[in-house]
Design a protein around this nucleic acid. Structure first.
Length: 505
RNA sequence: GGCCCAUUCGUCUAACGGUUAGGACAUGCGGUUUUCAUCCGUAAAAUAGGAGUUCGAUUCUCCUAUGGGCUACCA
């Protein structure tokens, strides 16, 4: 059973924070694993030591934790297939490269990167923009295919720097069946002799990836579309080692909301929405805002992400993580890239805010307000305000008047509604209000209605004044609900306090 | 430039040869509301173009166009 169970991996490189495209890849891996009672693991691909960014790995782990899609194997998580960081596996790769050389599937190449750049530039000048180190040009380069074995041995003994390259066969159609795209065919004449092992003693992505996926018994490789062109190379590598290849699924890319191209780090600040799950502070101190800090609930973020390139085939759009696991399948993943839509994202957030109970909301709000008010009070505030909020913080920016007397009065409303006779009217209303015995929404409303009838005034004349005095605003929830929450005494006091404030102006 | 992948309303997508081409977001207009939000109703909005295959193409094939990805001793 163990060798047939599903094992998938998320394999980011720690070159920076994980952006939402990466989170979606991780999410689909997570969903697929859970759906099939399999294992979801994370492997850090840090074979390029020059691009290592401190803190990136921790960021990735934290972000996944916030999203609720933690792997069960990985650095710091345990598992029987470790280590899960490629730099810590360094010594494991060389024998595999040697094996390929022995079987003549790969060869030593001594050309320096400077020589190669020169070669490309030269070819470009001669009108050949497409120079590649491949099965045609390798004969004229310095490598163990073109050089005599004595010469090769001499250079090796001499300690000359070299890389190990894949010896791509000539004119072979490599085919594999992608779980999302169906059959993909590429002719080997179109792929170059990729470097497998670098002169610094580290493998490249291609070698390390295949070796680790094999050793970690990965059954399904679910990754971004940007890997599609190198998939044939990977297939050939599995063949060269005589291993069964895992199944491949190449996910469509996430595109910019406007214009063209894939979503990138800078789009967030440019367009005013986050591209990262959580805040990221770059090395030069620049801060990129995250969904978490912006006030999004992880459930909303994940729900939105799941629907970018996948759908359940029904009209249901709100899915918990467990429901996503239940509904997910690779054959319902779209093929074309998806433009990210910030508006829809906000809509998801709004839906989840509504769906969250008032106590939970109050607890979140309490954190923002640093425990300034009791959970009980905040719970009531949330109940009154959440219908008109998108983020938890909106509840406070729109509804702080419920706990704090207004110090400012909306200028527009004052100008429009506050007349010379308003003061007398409100004083009169205050006196009436003060006589209400059982002070609740219904009794207040009934009293208000009879007050209107008696004064022969329209509701639109009186209520906005009442609202203005009590809340300082021109809009908001039902005034009768607000009044009940505030209590009789506070209502009466606010009316007189409000009147004196308006007098000063 | 070469190779690969893709193409249904503005956006995310449904329809796996036969539908008045459906839903959601956004937008417009109504209704509800003291107001704002919510909510309800409603409208407008798409099969990139051209050939085939077929009794019949959004759906299959080819061409063109467009978009995207890759083209490093990066992943």
């Amino acid at each position: 059973m163990s060798n047939t169970s599903v094992r998938v991996r998320f394999a980011p490189s720690p070159t920076g924070p994980l952006h939402m495209g990466g989170v979606r890849t991780a999410l689909y891996n997570y969903l697929f694993a859970k759906k099939h009672n399999g294992t979801f693991l994370i492997r850090i691909e840090d074979t390029d030591q020059t691009r290592f960014v401190p803190g990136a790995q921790d960021y990735i782990m934290d972000a996944m934790k916030w999203c609720g899609i933690m792997p069960t194997e990985g650095p710091g998580l345990g598992g029987d297939f470790g280590p899960y960081i490629q730099s810590e596996r360094k010594e494991m790769y060389r024998p595999y490269a040697d094996e390929l050389i022995k079987n003549e599937k790969a060869y030593y190449a001594f050309d320096s990167s400077e020589e190669l750049t020169q070669m490309r530039e030269q070819a470009l000048k001669m009108g050949m923009p497409n120079w590649q180190y491949n099965n045609v040009t390798r004969a004229s380069m310095q490598n163990s295919v073109s050089l005599s074995s004595d010469e090769v041995q001499k250079r090796l003994d001499n300690g000359d720097p070299y890389v190990i390259r894949m010896k791509m066969p000539r004119n072979v159609d490599v085919r594999f069946e992608d779980e999302i795209r169906g059959w993909v065919v590429v002719n080997t004449n179109n792929v170059d002799d990729k470097v497998l092992f670098k002169s610094d003693g580290m493998p490249t992505y291609h070698l390390a990836n295949i070796v680790d996926d094999h050793l970690m018994e990965i059954t399904h490789v679910i990754r971004g579309e940007e890997w599609l062109p190198s998939a044939p190379l990977h297939v050939l590598l599995y063949e060269a080692f005589g291993w069964d290849a895992p199944k491949f699924a190449h996910l469509p890319l996430l595109l910019k909301p406007d214009g063209n191209g894939k979503l990138s780090k800078r789009d967030g600040d440019r367009l005013g929405f986050p591209v990262f799950p959580t805040d990221w502070r770059s090395e030069d101190g620049e801060i990129f805002t995250g969904y978490r800090e912006k006030g999004y609930l992880p459930e909303a973020f994940i729900n939105m992400l799941a629907f970018l390139g996948w759908n359940p085939g029904t009209t249901k759009e709100l899915f918990s993580l467990d429901e996503l696991v239940e509904a997910f399948s690779l054959d319902r993943v779209a093929k074309a890239g998806a433009k990210f839509d910030p508006d829809k994202t906000k809509w998801f957030q709004q839906q989840y805010l509504r769906g969250t109970d008032n106590v939970t909301l109050a607890e979140k709000l309490s954190v923002v307000l640093e425990n300034k008010y009791s959970i009980d009070k905040l719970t009531s505030v949330c109940g009154l305000m959440k219908e008109r909020a998108t983020f938890v913080e909106d509840i406070w920016t729109e509804g702080s008047f419920l706990l704090e007397r207004p110090s400012e009065f909306d200028e527009q409303t004052v100008n429009k509604k506050w007349k010379d006779e308003s003061e007398a009217l409100m004083l009169e209303w205050s006196a009436v209000l003060n006589t209400v015995a059982n002070f609740n929404t219904e009794t207040i409303e009934a009293t208000f209605k009879s007050f209107l009838a008696e004064k022969e005034l329209g509701i639109g004349v009186v209520l906005p004044l009442f609202r203005l005095l009590l809340t300082g605003k021109g809009m908001g929830p039902s005034m009768f609900d607000i009044s009940e929450f505030l209590g009789k005494e506070e209502c009466v006091e606010r009316i007189s306090a409000g009147i004196s404030s308006l007098k000063k102006v």
